[in-house]
């Protein structure tokens, strides 16, 4: 891993995500141990690792759904979840934390669409309640986004009336409706039937082509190889190995990486 400096660099050169020795424990169980990495603007970073290695926990730390115990996380140069005054860190108030999360989109393994709202309402919800956008504008924007994920004709469907792949595409559109600068994907295709994986990956590929910065936890190595700009292998809460996906997948350096890849490839 490249040694990381404090994120004080202005704009364009500033990484989108910068983790500096991030640690997280649940009770006595240390789930993340001193994770340091950076995701540049416009990059697609793939995170792989065995079950329980802390991949989800790391993603959740990035948008402060989990509180980091030690180390620092910066998103676009801004410290996540804390305010730094002098040498001390003060945890942000809930409203301030919510403000930070607006700019970070998240897509979940189980979609987590709101079942009491139609696809279109799901997408229009946050822009209206959080950003105060007019309902009309939000619905119009929602229609555009639905068209973008290939579901223009499904606006009035409730989540229970959509296939898994369709639900996940709506979930992606819902996250995009907040105009995020960073998108987090936590195993977006692993709850899907194999024949539905492709349609979701296609949407993600198109999104990457628009220059969106993405952190993707995935076991879709084909996608990682093709779309990913960087890759880290997590095991036991530490970054065991990182590098360009092609390189790392074809030529793993660590025994643990080799063992893991031999199982999933």
């Amino acid at each position: 891993m490249t040694p990381v400096q404090r994120a004080t660099t202005p704009d364009a050169a500033r990484p989108m995500v910068e983790a500096v020795a991030v640690s997280k424990r649940f009770g006595g169980n240390e789930v993340l141990t001193s994770i340091s990495l950076r995701v540049e603007r416009g990059q697609v970073m793939c995170v792989i690792g065995p079950s329980g290695s802390g991949k989800s926990t790391f993603l959740r730390c990035i948008n402060h759904l989990e509180v980091v115990d030690a180390g620092r996380l910066y998103v676009d140069g801004e410290l996540v979840g804390y305010r730094e005054r002098g040498d001390k860190l003060y945890e942000l108030k809930p409203a301030e934390a919510a403000r930070q999360r607006r700019d970070i989109g998240m897509v979940f393994q189980h979609f987590n669409l709101f079942p009491h709202m139609t696809a279109l309402e799901n997408i229009a919800e946050a822009p209206t309640t959080v950003k105060g956008m007019s309902r009309r504008d939000a619905l119009e924007r929602g229609r555009d986004l639905l068209a973008r994920v290939g579901l223009a004709s499904h606006a009035g469907h409730y989540p229970s009336q959509l296939s898994g792949g369709q639900q996940q595409r709506v979930a992606i559109a819902r996250a995009l409706a907040m105009d995020p600068k960073l998108m987090l994907f936590d195993e977006p295709t692993s709850a899907l039937d194999p024949e539905l994986v492709g349609e979701v990956l296609d949407v993600m590929r198109e999104l990457a082509d628009t220059g969106m910065t993405m952190v993707v936890v995935t076991h879709e190595m084909g996608f990682a190889r093709e779309v990913g700009d960087a890759m880290v292998f997590l095991d036991g809460g530490v970054v065991v190995e990182s590098g360009a996906p092609r390189e790392l997948l074809a030529n793993p350096q660590h025994e643990r990486t080799k063992a893991f890849l031999s199982k999933v490839l």
Binding site: N63, L65, P94, A95, A98, R99, R101, R102, D103, I104, G105, M106, F108, H110, N112, L113, F114, P115, H116, E125, A126, T129, V130, A171, R174, A175, M178
Partner: peptide, 27 residues
């Protein structure tokens, strides 16, 4: 109500009150 609902609302930047009012209570 599934915990994932609250999490999804939170991740969209909704406050606790908005999450309760718009997502959790209706369900």
């Amino acid at each position: 109500v599934d915990a994932g609902q609250e999490e999804a609302a939170k991740a969209l930047g909704m406050s606790w009150g908005q999450t309760m009012r718009r997502i959790v209570i209706p369900q």
